[in-house]
Design a binder for these strands. Structure first.
Lengths: 171, 171
DNA sequence: ATGACTGATTGCAAATTGCAACCAGTTGTA
DNA sequence: TACAACTGGTTGCAATTTGCAATCAGTCAT
């Protein structure tokens, strides 16, 4: 494998050859915005219900493509930790635009689009901050923060929506 | 068909359900940046070599999804003209980011990435101008331009690279 | 020692993809 | 008026990919 010739040298085509399928970006999204780092987390806490063979296959591919790395988890001899690389962290702006586009044109659910809304409103400055946090978390870069992390802000907003929805249902 | 339930209400997932495959964005790219408007143009001038059944299938899907429209070509009773919609024109920033990312991390060819480079350097202001031109061309919006179009600039840069490459080979 | 948890693998049916041939109606040209 | 080229596709078929469910061997806490 890996001998497969490329369809063309167009940057858009080559990008699609890496993550132009129904699952690769879902996995990266869950690692980026959902904090998933282990196989089992990605498998069972997947909103879309990925199956284990597909997940294993895509993780292998993303590894080959240099989009993620895999290291041992000291706490368990069988446990692996998957980390993002600079190459995948660089996709943050694309995720932000994808989220914004989906929110505008597709039947999104409120609770699953609040993060996209915040990311859209925050703009490139917020994306950069989030990317710095990811580098810190996945690449071990030194932190230089002030106040709550972007990840915390996104999570807080998500939980606030969930709480409001629960209250509304209860009424 | 069209009764298929969505995997989740996440904007990124829903976006991928629309164009998360190996061909949809290639077709839209060729319509946007390659000026293709007819079936045969998309089929035979495709850099990646799409086959006619896949092209027909994707055009039908993009039509269903409201990403393109189809009208009769007055010049030929069998000829159809495919046009972009606002929904697909709104993908321009995503194409720009995809191109920039591919250029940075993948083995792109010079001639096929010069457009991506210009688009990246031009930034959001250039993207907006290009989107306005697409609206003009595909949605019939009134023009308000000054100087050469973005499409012309991209094309000129592409041809310049081709000419330089030809000269280099000849030497 | 036992049962839950780890990252997967396996078998199989269904759906999708890709290739090549083909098609009927339309048009320009000899 | 014949003919070839061009129009947007369709059809048949093999190969690949997907998705589901069951399974697996090693690890770990109790």
């Amino acid at each position: 494998m890996s001998t497969a010739a490329h369809r063309s040298g167009c940057p858009i085509n080559l990008s699609l050859e890496v993550f132009g399928d129904r699952w690769s970006l879902i996995i990266l999204r869950d690692m980026m915005f959902g904090g998933r780092r282990h196989f089992r987390e990605l498998l069972t806490r997947s909103e879309e219900g990925i199956s284990s063979n597909i997940l294993a296959d895509r993780l292998k591919m993303l590894l080959d493509e240099g989009m993620i790395t895999k290291t041992d988890d000291p706490s368990h001899k069988q446990k692996a930790v998957y980390s993002l690389t600079e190459k995948s962290i660089a996709l943050v702006p694309i995720f932000a635009h994808l989220g914004a586009w989906g929110r505008r044109y597709l039947p999104v659910s409120e609770e699953l689009s609040i993060r996209a809304q915040l990311l859209e409103e925050g703009g490139p400055a917020l994306w950069d901050q989030f990317m710095a946090e990811l580098r810190e978390l996945h690449l071990g870069e030194p932190a230089k923060r002030e106040g709550p992390t972007v990840a915390e802000q996104l999570q807080a907003a998500y939980e606030k929506v969930l709480a409001r929805q629960a209250a509304k249902t209860r009424r």
